[in-house]
């Protein structure tokens, strides 16, 4: 759906169903250089199981207007502003990669607005190497290719997709290419500059589920485990052999794990 947030028209995927703010929303937060299409196999799945799904494109991403935000804190504030504008009192936040940082920061600063946390392929800090940062500024296409390659596990590189006929790598590259030209650079800088993860996690008491990928080259699993360790009320699910793009690579397992957690 299209939604006016302050002075920007944004796009929010609602899984093919009309959104109602009657009850808790399930908010799906995409990662660096991604957009609502990260959740193509989650938004529809949960919407048709009674969840009020909001998978927004952050400004400058996907079908949203505006320019990309520059810090994780700004993104967290933006999520809360989005909830306010839709008159949503509490939400379950599910983040992927950078979306985990946003979810953690928002939950720590606005604890009354978040009831549960789903953290997929995340960490408390996501430092980005200088080479990739420079590439995202000077050679966007190359940066997208590198990230798409690093982001997928063995199944992804073999194009062994649960969606008949689909290529993980081909789709991943096109998805990232469809964003604002500054989106990836700003996102990577925001991740690299964010240092509040550990302190934020220490404040979080809400139940959290960490879904981690065994073959994650973007946020290696040891950092995901550290994230889970630092959340007092967390559980973890590890998907061996999967790459960073878990929502696409292992949609069935991710959905089942999340559904079980959200219903518990």
């Amino acid at each position: 759906m299209k939604h006016q947030l302050i002075d920007t028209q944004i796009h929010i995927a609602t899984g093919g169903r009309s959104f109602s703010n009657d009850g808790e929303a399930l908010v799906l937060l995409h990662g660096s250089g991604q957009n609502h299409l990260t959740w193509v196999l989650q938004s529809r799945y949960f919407a048709y199981r009674g969840y009020q799904v909001l998978a927004p494109d952050f400004p400058g991403h996907g079908l949203s207007g505006g320019t990309p935000l520059e810090s994780i804190e700004d993104m967290a504030d933006w999520v809360i502003a989005l909830l306010d504008s839709l008159d949503v009192k509490t939400a379950r936040l599910v983040g992927h990669s950078q979306g985990c940082l946003v979810a953690i920061d928002a939950t720590a600063r606005y604890p009354e607005r978040v009831s549960r946390l789903g953290l997929i392929a995340g960490a408390l800090a996501i430092p980005v190497n200088d080479q990739l940062l420079t590439m995202s500024d000077e050679a966007l296409g190359k940066a997208i290719s590198v990230m798409t390659s690093w982001g997928h596990g063995p199944m992804g590189h073999m194009h062994d997709n649960t969606q008949p006929g689909h290529s993980f790598l081909g789709y991943g590259k096109r998805l990232m290419t469809s964003n604002h030209a500054d989106a990836l650079r700003n996102d990577l800088k925001a991740c690299n500059n964010y240092s509040g993860g550990k302190a934020s996690a220490a404040k979080i008491v809400q139940p959290a589920l960490c879904i981690l990928a065994g073959s994650d080259r973007m946020t290696p699993i040891k950092f995901g485990m550290a994230m889970a360790d630092s959340l007092v009320n967390s559980e973890r699910v590890i998907m061996n052999g999967a790459g960073h793009m878990l929502p696409a690579e292992r949609p069935a397992e991710v959905n089942v794990a999340l559904r079980h957690f959200l219903a518990s």
């Binding site: 194009h159 062994d160 969606q163 008949p164 006929g165 290529s167 790598l169 081909g170 789709y171």
Partner: peptide, 20 residues
């Protein structure tokens, strides 16, 4: 079986998907 073929064609062409 058809999906393997589709995914192989998509991979060789550099497309997002193929349908046989």
């Amino acid at each position: 079986t058809v999906a393997v073929l589709e995914q192989r064609v998509a991979a060789l062409e550099g497309g997002v998907a193929a349908t046989a």
